[in-house]
Amino acid sequence: MEQPTTAFFVRGPQPFTRLVFFSILSLVLMGVDARLHYLTEVRQGFMGLLHPLQVAANMPGYWYRQTAEYWQGHDAMLADNRRLRIVNLQQGVDLQRLRSMEEENMHLRQLLGAVQEIKQPAQLAEIMNVDRDPFTQRVVVNLGSRHGIMTGQAVADGMGVIGQVTRTYPFSSEVTLVTDKSLAIPIQVERSGLRAIAFGHGRDNIIDLPYLPTNVDIQEGDVLVTSGIDGVYPPGLAVARVTSVERDSDLTFARIVCEPAAGIEQHRQVLLLKTPLVAAATPIPDTPAVNTPSGKAPTPTAKPKPSSPSSTTATPASSTPATLPAAPANGGT
């Protein structure tokens, strides 16, 4: 071992033997990971070890942005400020209307005896890195289970829904984007009120709206918003805009293509929304009858979706059937 000459000629087992050995090892690992889910704890432990590296990898970009901000011209800053002030003014006007409308809405709800909306607190997180795998649409954000993030939380930005937290690590968590194939969102067409389920396409920043008949009332330009019946996403968040509707009478279903409303590939900051049930501090999500302790009626969930928050690989809200009953309008008993 000391002399490089011996090390050069003594090569240990044959390459093919090594290949077979390591192939079998990785196949076993793949099987264990895919079928048995034993490795989540191992993964979390190692992720904790890798975290410093991940933070370090984000440092250059962070410094760059810091210095760029520092050297940004005075004029640019002033112009930005002016623009923001105008936006602020406009939004302030809207906000005043919102306040009164919120109050009016609450009043009406009380009159109807319907359920109260539960406010969803949100945490601001920053995207750390994008998945290198071209088949999955995932990002990693800088808040994890130590910050109270749970799997199943909805993620949004100022323009709409971005996705859902699917895996949490101590200091970071993995967000599956709405454009991922495995993510489905219960939506509602804003114009017609039609409910459906939107699926990610997996590529090209597209969302599909499958399994709708060819005569469905959807037009190009329709805005899809979350219906809120899954109990994960708050109702009314923009999800996507319909870009094309193909009605081929030979096919059973219409082919509807939408583009996500949120700036999925542009933003660095995202909001992690607490799921309504978590927000209402429901202690036991497994009980069949979900009663929130604060005396409020449960949120209009057709299905208390957040499968036990402790589990680390939550299935995205995909199993909600398309023919769910509406939000319980029979309300006050």
Partner: peptide
């Protein structure tokens, strides 16, 4: 050697949260 490559692949699997062992293979 192949073992080093396997370990590196496993590290990548961990870092990206992909299927355990896919990159290692």
């Amino acid at each position: 050697n192949i073992g080093t490559a396997w370990m590196a692949g496993l590290l990548i699997d961990l870092a990206t949260g992909g299927l355990f062992g896919a990159n290692a293979f």
